[in-house]
């Protein structure tokens, strides 16, 4: 466990040391939401609200995940390999990235509320909205970390993350948009429980698969 926490702390430290990348993603979120605001001006339906929110969320996640593995140099990778079990590495990376995407999406939600607040979200259930936001973000983070590791190992650069990642996250995207729409419409937890269940299952699926398969990928 101490190996895991050390790796996790290393990720956080690296991120904080390179503040410009974090600021870059922050700018990306702000700019995207603002462009949405300028082009839509006003959102009338919960469905559009949820869809736009998650399209922004997905692109933010892709932006954040592209450097998930390539930020460590080859030397660092080898060093980590000699120190830690690959399961610890993927665990730390996944957890950190899930958290990062969640934080970015909370920021994005705040901007959405700022620019698109109003009648549409008057009856929204914020508890559910946040819960969905968290589960959707962790799902994106987990799936994309795994995809980023594949893309990194294939050695073809970051372009592959998008090609491999988009089809993989579509089931998650469909479910999370539906969940968010229901939450904005003010439906109860019971009415939304099926979407929640699918989200949890997809989270678990991508996490378990990554956890089992990553050691095979890591050994060379």
């Amino acid at each position: 466990m101490s190996v895991f926490s050390a790796l996790f702390v290393k990720e956080v430290r690296l991120e904080l040391r390179q503040k410009h990348t974090l600021a870059g993603i922050f700018m990306y979120v702000l700019a995207t939401v603002f462009v949405c605001y300028l082009s839509f001006e006003k959102i009338e339906t919960p469905r559009t609200w949820g869809a736009l929110m998650w399209v922004t969320g997905v692109f933010t996640a892709f932006n954040a995940m592209q450097k998930a593995f390539s930020s460590d140099g080859n030397g660092t990778q080898l060093y980590l390999y000699s120190l830690a079990h690959p399961r610890h590495i993927i665990l730390a990376k996944s957890m950190y990235n899930a958290l990062l995407v969640a934080v970015l999406n909370v920021i994005s939600l705040a901007f959405f509320l700022l620019f698109f607040g109003g009648e549409v979200i008057a009856s929204a259930d914020f508890g559910q909205l946040i819960l969905g936001l968290f589960l959707g973000s962790t799902g994106l983070g987990l799936a994309l970390t795994f995809v980023a590791s594949l893309a990194y190992k294939s050695g073809t650069g970051v372009g592959l993350v998008a090609i491999l990642g988009f089809p993989v996250i579509i089931p998650l995207l469909i479910t999370i948009v539906r969940h968010t729409t229901f939450a904005i419409e003010g439906m109860s937890y019971l009415q939304n429980s099926l979407n929640l269940l699918i989200l949890v299952v997809l989270n678990l699926l991508s996490f378990v698969l990554a956890f089992i398969l990553f050691p095979y990928l890591w050994r060379e």
Binding site: S154, G155, L164, L213, Y216, L217, E220
Partner: peptide
């Protein structure tokens, strides 16, 4: 490398 990476992605794809 190709066989390993694509096998991993294939398992993911099947799931």
């Amino acid at each position: 490398k190709r066989s390993r990476i694509s096998a991993i992605f294939n398992i993911f794809a099947f799931a």
